[in-house]
Amino acid sequence: MALASEILVTVLILVGTFFLFVGSLGLAKLPDLMRRLHAPTKATTLGIGALLIASMLWFDLVHDALSFHEVLIALFLFMTAPVSAHVIAKAHILRDAPTRATLPPAQTSGWATLEPHPADPRER
């Protein structure tokens, strides 16, 4: 039993490390920002997720000390990673004219980043 849980923790640590490494490798390797954005947002969240599960299991099974606060970091990262990716993509669309030229049209109005801000006091 103890051996099985140790093997589980080891495998989870190695899996998490692999995905973290691949995420950073993608960040360094891919050619443009929109492609680079894919690597860290996905790979690092699963990497961190696996590491945190490993840490939780390690305290719970190997050391018999109840520990569950790792869930907080995991939940926080899973909620914030899409938001950071979204704001980075929005800023990229606003700043980069070649990217703007490749955007497909939206259904009925323009994309929110490029439209004037309705709540903007300077434009009211």
Binding site: G16, T17, L20, G23, S24, L27, L33, R36, L37, P40, T44, G47, I48, L51, L52, S55, E70, I73, L77, S84, I88, A91, H92, R95, D96
Partner: peptide
Amino acid sequence: DVLDRILALDTLVVNAIALIV
């Protein structure tokens, strides 16, 4: 671009968290 640097910093923070864990 400056956005590449922001993305790099964001990923660096995630790696730092992983290192701490």
